[in-house]
């Protein structure tokens, strides 16, 4: 639009800012920064940090929903879960869910971004249109998948049967691996547009002159991508991947609507197991522990990745 992002600056060096330290209170950076932090942090502290620490505390107790009496039991919930075969299964499922979706979302998202980065007729319509999976409320799009993967009325099964390719309805969600694959497909469907649009944003920062120069030097498509494009889109791609890992591991809605963790616990993820143990069975302490199990690992990963991105020159 009118204000094009300052692309020149992308390769440049950060100029050290002069600090206007002598003015009034509001002219100094430190206090002003602190002031600016207040509204956002107030909300985050009240509605996130407080319940979060409450959640940590609950995970160290044997609290049950609606019971006033409970005891502090230290790490017993965590220890108990470690030995619980359903929880072990959940860990495995979550790993499968992550490995089975994030790389695909990344690869497809990158490919789609490269396609959408070109100028062609109606490119804007395609850009907006292909975002639809991300726009439709998940609560409703997962119902559409519930139909597509239905054992009886799946249009996929029906049309394949009409084509004579299969005889019986496909058991999309009924065996352990079918259900996992189906969930992964639905998750990839929902996640690709986010990757695509985010990486597309990164691609727009790639100066065309650089690419052209490389092409003149005889670099092929593949070489140009790694030498010119990738360094520029790398930070944003890593960030998108980090977001996606977080969203995937803490996914709830899709699994809840499609399988509720079935068949025979083959698709339980942290969210659905915590829901089952905490809400249906009222074991709050244990449910909180399930939700928090991955937190340290995720937080560490996030911090390392963020530092890594920060340290790199733009």
């Amino acid at each position: 639009m009118a204000v094009a992002p300052n692309t020149q600056d992308l390769t440049g060096i950060e100029t050290p800012r002069t600090t206007f330290g002598r003015g009034s209170f509001l002219q100094r950076e430190g206090p002003l920064a602190a002031l600016f932090m207040i509204p956002g942090w107030a909300i985050l502290l009240l509605f996130m940090a407080y319940p979060f620490f409450l959640g940590i505390y609950i995970s160290l107790t044997n609290k049950r929903l609606g019971r006033s009496a409970y005891d502090f039991i230290g790490f017993d919930n965590y220890r108990y879960l470690w030995g619980d075969s359903i929880f072990q299964q959940t860990l495995k499922n979550t790993a499968i869910y992550g490995v089975g979706t994030v790389p695909f979302k990344l690869a497809f998202g990158l490919a789609l971004a490269l396609l959408l980065n070109r100028q062609f007729r109606f490119s804007r319509v395609f850009r907006a249109g292909l975002l639809l999976p991300w726009i439709v409320p998940t609560a409703l799009s997962s119902l559409a998948f519930l139909m597509l993967f239905n054992s009886v009325i799946s249009p996929i099964s029906i049309s394949l049967q009409q084509a004579g390719l299969i005889e019986n309805n496909i058991n999309f969600l009924g065996t352990a691996w079918n259900a996992r694959i189906s969930l992964c497909v639905a998750n990839i469907w929902r996640g690709v547009p986010f990757f695509a649009i985010t990486i597309l944003a990164g691609l727009q920062a790639v100066p065309t002159e650089l690419n052209e120069a490389a092409a003149l030097d005889g670099a092929n498509r593949w070489q140009r991508f790694w030498a010119v494009t990738w360094p520029i889109i790398k930070p944003i791609t890593l960030i998108a991947t980090l977001f996606s890992v977080i969203w995937t591991i803490s996914d709830f809605q899709l699994v809840y609507v499609l399988t509720k963790g079935g068949p025979a616990n083959a698709t339980h993820v942290f969210g659905t197991l915590a829901y089952q143990r905490g809400l249906n069975a009222t074991y709050f302490g244990e449910a909180a522990a399930i939700s928090l199990y991955m937190f340290p690992a995720l937080a560490l990963g996030a911090v390392l990745l963020l530092r890594n991105i920060r340290r790199e020159p733009h």
Binding site: E29, G30, M48, A49, P51, A274, F295
Partner: peptide
């Protein structure tokens, strides 16, 4: 735009806030 102590820490902390699953939060909330 500001250089200030805690800046990096607060930035990272906001990001970490993203890691807390809503399924954990909604009951205390």
């Amino acid at each position: 735009r500001f250089q200030f102590r805690m800046g990096n820490f607060l930035g990272a902390a906001i990001f970490i806030a993203y890691l807390v699953p809503p399924t954990l939060l909604f009951i205390p909330l």
